Structures are given as structure tokens and as C-alpha cells.
Simulated scan of single mutants.
Amino acid sequence: MISAADLPDTIPVFQLPGALLLPRARLPLHIFEPRYLAMLDDTLKTPHRLIGMIQPREIPGSSERKLHAIGCAGRVTAFSETEDGRYMITLSGISRYRITREVSGFAPYLKADVSWDGFSRDLGPGEEDKGFDREPFMALLRRFFASRGLATDWDSLQEAEDELLINSLSMLCPFAPEDKQALLEAPSLATRRETLVTLIEFALRSGTDEEKMQ
């Protein structure tokens, strides 16, 4: 387990639109671009083995992209190499962070100085959501999955602990990158669940409106 004292001041940053990592959750990644292969090789040589996931932020009216300020760092906890030199890895979410400065250097990938202040809860035990009413939430989720033609193991979802359920759905549901960022930045599990419900309800209403227009 990584403690606050073990967290480095500078980490490599992997920008990937729509890919959300949350503390205490796991994100599988397929690494094949040369710059990210170099990032992984360098990361595996460090004691912390941390990679910072981050969402790029589109600037209206411009083709330029910047990065959101807040991301989540994950520790490489599993990896395997394919015959053609690609990697399949798993990042285990450790803590969110705030970028304070992008670091330029000789590496082909991006690094950033980061602050971990304000995210101490991420390093603690799993969160509870005492206001979570599971039955109406699952009913809403079934409607959403049916509207999108999505399949899942409903028994496993029903039995999952609150944090695992809410965070897994936040990571896996097909929301826009900006919506994923809102889920990441939610200050508590209850707030993330409320945001998730709002996004699902909006998606269901939007689907109904589109059907009426056709």
C-alpha cells in the first residue's frame, strides 16, 4: 500500500479521452504507441510504479487541446507483453492529483509536477454511501442499459459493494469525456452517485427526444 509520504512530486502522464480511473478501482490498458511503451519501461523502474491518467480538454473554436487540472494516478499492478512488443497492463487507482506544472524534458512522453493536497481520502479505506437507495438505482440502470443495448452480469452488480458498483459504472458507462471528468472530480462517493444518476437520466431523456424527432 502506498502512503502519502511515498507519493512522488513528478509523475508521467497518460492522456486518454474517455478513460477514467478512480481510487481503489482498476483500469486495463493496451499500450502500443512508442512514447507510451517508453513511459511504461521507465515507470517499471521506479519504486512507486505510478502513471497519472488525465483527460485532454478541448478548447472551443480551436484544434488545440490542453489537459484538465485533475487526474488520477494508478500503480502498475499487472502487465504482460505480446509477441509483437505491445503491453497489456492494469492500473490500480491510488489517488487523484492536481497538475501544477507540465515538465518538459528529453522523454518522448509528458511528465507533470503534481500536488496530492485535498485528496487524502483517496488513500484511506473504501467509502460508504449511506444515502444510497439501491432498488430505484438498479431500476434506472436497467432502463439505461436496455436503451443502449448494453449487457452485464446483473447478479454481480446487485451484490457489489456501494463503492465498487458506483465507481465501476462511472468508469464503464459510455459518457462523454467532460462527463467522465465530472465523475472524477466528485468530492465524495455520494456526490459521484448523484452525478451518475443525473447523467443516466439525461441520457434517457435525450434518447426519448431523439426518438420523437425521427
Rank of each mutant, 00 (worst) to 15 (best):
V76E: 00
T100C: 03
S92E: 13
Y36G: 10
V103W: 00
P56E: 07
E64M: 05
S95N: 03
Y109S: 13
R96W: 05
I99E: 02
G131N: 05
H68R: 12
R49V: 01
Y87P: 02
H48F: 00
F119W: 08
E127A: 15
G52T: 00
T46F: 04
P34G: 08
T90A: 15
F132A: 12
A112E: 02
L123C: 02
A69Y: 03
P60L: 08
S115R: 11
L37E: 00
P34A: 06
L123Y: 06
E83F: 01
E127V: 11
R57F: 01
R75W: 10
E128V: 01
E58R: 12
F106H: 13
F119Y: 12
G74R: 03
L67C: 05
K130P: 12
D117R: 15
E127C: 08
P125L: 13
D133N: 12
S104A: 05
H68A: 02
F106P: 05
L67W: 08
R65P: 01
L91G: 02
R65F: 09
V76H: 02
D117V: 14
H48W: 06
K45Q: 13
D42S: 08
S115F: 07
S80A: 05
G71C: 07
F132E: 04
V76P: 03
E127D: 06
R86Y: 10
G61V: 00
E33T: 10
D42E: 14
G105L: 00
E81T: 14
P125A: 14
K66T: 15
L67G: 00
H48E: 02
I70E: 02
P47C: 11
G131Y: 04
E58T: 09
W116E: 04
G52E: 01
G93R: 05
A69R: 15
D113N: 09
P56D: 04
A78Y: 11
G93D: 05
S92R: 11
L40Q: 04
D122C: 15
S62M: 02
H68C: 10
E33Y: 09
T77R: 07
D113L: 11
H68Y: 12
V76C: 11
I89N: 09
R57M: 08
I54G: 08
Y87K: 06
I99G: 07
F119H: 07
E81V: 15
I51W: 06
S120L: 15
S80D: 09
F79R: 09
G126N: 06
D133C: 11
G74N: 03
G126D: 12
R75V: 05
P47L: 10
K111Q: 09
S62F: 01
H48I: 00
R86H: 14
A69K: 10
T77M: 10
H68D: 01
T46Y: 05
D113I: 06
C72P: 04
E33Q: 08
L40P: 00
S115D: 08
F106Q: 10
L110V: 04
I59W: 01
E128I: 01
G85W: 11
K130D: 15
G105H: 04
E64Y: 06
